[in-house]
Design a protein around this nucleic acid. Sequence first.
DNA 1: CGTCGTGTTGAGGCTATTCAAAGTATGTGG
DNA 2: CCACATACTTTGAATAGCCTCAACACGACG
Lengths: 250, 250
Amino acid sequence: MTSALQPSPEHARLIRKFESVSRLGPSDIATLARLPLRTRSVEAGAEVVAQGATPTECCFVIEGWMCRYVMTREGGRQIVSFHIPGDLPDRDSLHLPHLDHSISAISSARVAFIPHAAVSAVLAHHPNIAVAFWRDAVVDAGVFRQWLTSLGRRDAKQRVAHLICEMFTRLEGLGLADSDHFHFPVTQTQLGDALGLSAVHINRTLQDLKASGAMSWKSSVVTIHDFDALRQVGDFDPAYLELRPMGLTH
Amino acid sequence: MTSALQPSPEHARLIRKFESVSRLGPSDIATLARLPLRTRSVEAGAEVVAQGATPTECCFVIEGWMCRYVMTREGGRQIVSFHIPGDLPDRDSLHLPHLDHSISAISSARVAFIPHAAVSAVLAHHPNIAVAFWRDAVVDAGVFRQWLTSLGRRDAKQRVAHLICEMFTRLEGLGLADSDHFHFPVTQTQLGDALGLSAVHINRTLQDLKASGAMSWKSSVVTIHDFDALRQVGDFDPAYLELRPMGLTH
DNA sequence: CGTCGTGTTGAGGCTATTCAAAGTATGTGG
DNA sequence: CCACATACTTTGAATAGCCTCAACACGACG
């Protein structure tokens, strides 16, 4: 079948993502390549799924960066995750009646929507894909734990360094980073909302990190000069990202 | 079959937990009642599963409280979750080669271990249980998001109030809380490790909360005098705990 | 009866915050 | 191509929230 041999670029992104967390067989890949995708372009800052909504589709990132966030009663905003191409920011909506958070585009982005029914059908009949789905969710949980650790027990410099290391490593795992730099379309205000800090303090902390020589950041491009130093500063251990796919069950 | 009609108290706890997140049919319940459990008592503070371990069983809480935590390089400890009877603190170990966190008993506790193979077999053949398993994981993720929001964007008083509300609501959902009070065997130091605060500051914050009249805390028992006030202070909305079980698929 | 874990209180200091303002890109319309 | 608007970054000063250190109180327990 032609579609199995030549998946669309969108499907290829999805397949690549699943292959980064779990091993898939040819029939799994062919199945993923046939998933119905409705693609859409969204501009920077646009809300794609609102808190409280009850989606009937899963959203998946093709291009650009997205984030999930929770608003507090007082208007504070906490970004709880960043999402890069291949990610399924609302994978949980499949098992949750209404979302407890919103999903927005950070940069201008292209996203695809897959009907819940299609996802459920694939999961029910393809155990390897179901395992990949599980592993993706479990890695996400590990990311949450690390973010919690950062917000609870790491200071500003460590938090920023840890996040830079995490995003660089995740992008690398999907083939989306160059050897020493990557596109980071996040404003300092958004960075503050993710790391539980004010934009002002993010700014000073970044200058501090730049002065140390481990990294630089100019017009949305982060360049890593000394990853090991950054790793050290941020207390970063990539183990939780589980970049080695586990074996097939079938 | 007798075991299906009269599940052991341990199995009853597990069944009750799954029923609190998802609807189960009689055959699902009978299946859960037959799961092989190896029970064990652990004393307060004991580590049950160590960071980096590769468990071959899932651990489940029968009695007492447990927690998961991550240590930073500098020796800081971040508690990332509390677990009460019915919870499966290392449910993720089923899909994760090695744990990125440790699991300890907070109070003296009784836990049971279920071999991964037994869990996998049940999930593969009982779609309703698989859905319950998913929903449990998804609710956990919601709890993580709320904790992140607390650590990132709520002050000390709000964090404590939010946690008290959350634990009270979770215990109630499992029938483990009385109308206005519950057993809370967590020290102020542990509370600090969970909320990203020092024990000293937790102490002052608690006094502040007690003075407001919304709650009191004496010898491991928290009494809620005005839940609504506490909910207000902590910006707590129970929606993320998803206490209404969703329907059957079969 | 002393010890250990936990809770309580005080003083001083540091981190990160808020508010305010100015500087710098980037994009837009004339 | 310039003038302007908008968004983002940078800087300074004053302050609040939380931390650390240190000491003491209290109850449980051997």
